[in-house]
């Protein structure tokens, strides 16, 4: 079994109102020195068998078509130890 994590974040040039709200709240709660907050989504996916190229290609397809909105979001896929 292999575990992969898919991170989905708004593209850098896209406004992130929620991240901005968190950034504002951090300041109000006394945490200084924070210049930017971007919020996104994380998916943890366990796949059977090895993470071979074919399986990885499948995951990329899934990440770009279902887990993210390619018009406004970027994703990245990484393998982690389960």
């Amino acid at each position: 079994m292999a575990r992969v994590v898919v991170d989905v974040l708004l593209k850098p040039e896209i406004l992130d109102p929620q991240g901005k709200a968190v950034e504002g709240a951090l300041g109000r709660l006394g945490l200084s020195g924070v210049s930017s907050v971007r919020q996104g989504k994380t998916f943890t996916i366990d796949v059977d068998g090895d993470l071979d190229d074919a399986r990885l290609a499948q995951l990329h397809e899934l990440a770009s078509s279902l887990l993210s909105n390619p018009v406004i979001e970027d994703y990245s896929i990484r393998e982690v130890t389960a």
């Binding site: 708004l10 040039e13 992130d16």
Partner: peptide, 11 residues
């Protein structure tokens, strides 16, 4: 296809 705008209704 340029990046689209995202709105912030609270703003």
């Amino acid at each position: 296809r340029p990046s689209v705008q995202v709105g912030d209704p609270f703003m």
